[in-house]
């Protein structure tokens, strides 16, 4: 297994108290596999990824428990410089907002080349040639002429492709993409997603795709983990989760999105609001919004039940959810 996250806990110490952002997350990614982590804002999907990358702001953040095994070694027990070597070379991250993740006063070529200078000890001249090669690879037209351009001179889609080039530069074995297409227009979204999937296949990388968009996930992921209030509430192979969700939250999400091919009916709306991480409801965090909630849901946090092979649901009533179609 390329990456295994085991029982990860992350909390943030704020003025108002301790916000429990991640409360015991388990997931794994193999080489060449795409795991989609789905969740709304505040579900802990990005914080988990930041903990894996080692870019969590500490303080106020604190990893209060768990293990992150990368190729069998626990990242959390490594020394700082050891981790630094892994970051960039072995695992890389693509962020949502390319414009604010790129340095505005350095040319794109310098930023791409920097990777080779720092990690591979190349000369600046060779690094520049490498940068052109990378830009070609992510299909930026006239790469040779544009290598000296600054980020603001590129369109949003091209900037995101440069971000992808940067992440791919050292051919890492794991890529974490945090909402890589959210800021882009639909027609450009498709281009960028296709490029990412193609490069992933070529390099046989593991990919963690963090998103709130159920549509994007359906097209590229192998398996899905749905997060709510810092926990994984359901995980399954991609086909099955859409066909038959086994957690009321997943089911509600699927029902609440308007669809291109359907019209006119009132939308199903999950009632209430996402929980405040300072005061997560006792028991199942989803219980105040859940149509199936019973006494037991308010008392104890449900464990992950095995629904089928490779399928888990953190709901006492997963069977009823599956059956109630």
């Amino acid at each position: 297994m390329l990456l295994e996250v085991r029982d990860l806990h992350v909390e943030f110490h704020t003025r108002d108290g301790v916000a429990k952002a991640v409360n015991g997350v388990n997931y794994s990614v193999a080489e060449g596999e795409t795991l989609a982590v789905l969740g709304e804002s505040g579900s802990g999907k990005s914080v988990t990824a930041q903990a894996v990358m080692g870019i969590l702001d500490m303080p106020p953040g604190r990893i209060s428990g768990g293990e992150i095994l990368f190729k069998g070694r626990d990242l959390l027990k490594m020394k700082k410089d050891e981790r630094r070597k892994i970051r960039g070379q072995e695992m890389a991250m693509i962020f949502q907002d390319a414009l604010s993740s790129l340095n505005p006063v350095l040319s794109v070529g310098e930023q791409l080349g920097e990777m080779f200078v720092v990690h591979r000890g190349m000369s600046h001249k060779d690094a520049k040639a490498k940068a052109v090669e990378l830009m070609d690879r992510v299909r930026i037209p006239a790469a040779k002429e544009r290598v000296g351009n600054y980020p603001h001179q590129f369109s949003g889609g091209m900037r995101q492709r440069i971000m992808i080039a940067m992440a791919m530069a050292l051919e890492p074995s794991l890529i974490i993409a945090d909402e890589p297409t959210t800021a882009l227009d639909v027609t450009v979204q498709a281009q960028v997603m296709d490029l990412l999937a193609e490069l992933q296949r070529e390099l046989n990388m593991g990919l963690i795709l963090i998103t709130h968009d159920l549509g994007v996930v359906a097209d590229v992921a192998d398996k899905i983990a749905v997060m709510y209030a810092g926990r994984i509430v359901e995980s399954a192979p991609v086909h099955e989760i859409y066909r038959a969700p086994a957690h009321p939250y997943t089911k509600g999400l699927l029902q609440s999105i308007p669809r291109l091919d359907q019209k006119g009916r009132e939308l199903y709306a999950i009632k209430g609001l996402p929980p405040n991480l300072l005061h997560i409801p006792p028991g199942c965090a989803f219980n105040p919004r859940c149509p199936m909630a019973q006494e037991i849901c308010r008392g104890e946090v449900p464990p992950l039940f095995e629904v089928a092979e490779h399928r888990e649901s953190a709901c006492y009533f997963w069977k009823e959810t599956l059956d109630a179609r």
Binding site: Q189, A190, A218, D219, Y242
Partner: peptide
């Protein structure tokens, strides 16, 4: 280009991917 949240729909859809930017 709109992603439909249904992997089974992939086989039934023809996707037109535009080149370039606006």
């Amino acid at each position: 280009a709109v992603p439909v949240p249904d992997p089974a729909a992939r086989e039934h859809r023809e996707r037109i991917i535009l080149h370039g930017d606006v």
